Simulated scan of single mutants.
Amino acid sequence: MKQLDELKLKYIISLLENMEYGSLNITVHAGEITQIDKTEKKRFTLAKVNKS
């Protein structure tokens, strides 16, 4: 495996390890990874309001 490929794989793994919710889109052109798009979602819990 080429060194550049190892760098790309390490980058992809680091993105996945640090993502809680979201998606990772990897674009390949002529057998080579040319672009990586990361969409991450952050979810917040809503505090319940007591109606008295």
Rank of each mutant, 00 (worst) to 15 (best):
E17A: 08
H29L: 11
T27S: 15
K42V: 14
A30E: 15
D37Y: 06
I36Q: 02
V49H: 03
M19H: 05
K48V: 12
K51D: 06
L16V: 12
G22P: 04
K48P: 15
K2L: 15
E17Q: 06
L7P: 00
M19A: 09
I33C: 01
N50K: 09
A47W: 07
Y11G: 00
K2G: 12
H29D: 10
L15T: 02
G31Y: 12
L46D: 11
L24D: 05
T34M: 04
L16M: 11
G31L: 10
R43A: 03
L4C: 10
I12R: 00
I13T: 06
K2T: 14
N25K: 08
R43C: 03
V28I: 15
H29M: 12
L46N: 04
I36G: 03
I13K: 01
L15A: 06
V28W: 05
T34V: 13
Q35I: 03
V28H: 01
E40K: 03
T45G: 07
K2N: 15
S52F: 05
L24I: 14
F44R: 04
L16A: 10
Y21A: 01
N18W: 08
S23R: 06
K10L: 13
I12H: 01
V28T: 07
T39N: 06
K8N: 09
M1L: 09
T34N: 00
L16R: 00
I33Y: 04
I26E: 09
D37W: 00
K38W: 06
R43D: 11
T39D: 02
K38V: 14
V28S: 06
G22L: 09
M1V: 13
T34A: 07
E32Y: 04
T34Q: 02
N18Q: 14
A47V: 14
A47P: 06
T27K: 13
L16H: 03
Y11Q: 01
V28G: 03
S14P: 00
S23I: 08
I26W: 15
T39S: 05
K8F: 11
K51R: 03
Q3H: 14
L7C: 08
M1Q: 06
E17T: 05
A30G: 09
I26Q: 07
N25W: 04
G31N: 10
F44V: 13
Q3G: 11
V49A: 04
E6P: 00
K51G: 01
S52D: 00
K8Q: 07
G31Q: 09
D37T: 12
L7D: 13
M19V: 07
T34H: 00
Q3W: 12
D5V: 09
K10M: 14
E6D: 12
K51S: 01
Y21T: 01
A30R: 10
L46E: 08
E32H: 08
E32K: 13
T39M: 02
Y21P: 01
Y11P: 00
G22T: 08
S23K: 10
L9W: 04
M1S: 14
I26D: 12
L24G: 06
T27Q: 09
I12M: 05
V49M: 07
G31H: 09
L7S: 04
V28P: 00
Y21L: 04
K51Q: 01
E20T: 14
S52M: 00
I12W: 02
I26L: 13
V49D: 05
A30S: 13
G22H: 05
N50D: 12
L16C: 07
I12T: 02
K41I: 12
K41L: 10
N25V: 07
F44Q: 06
E17R: 07
Y11C: 00
K42S: 11
A30I: 10
G31V: 13
I12P: 02
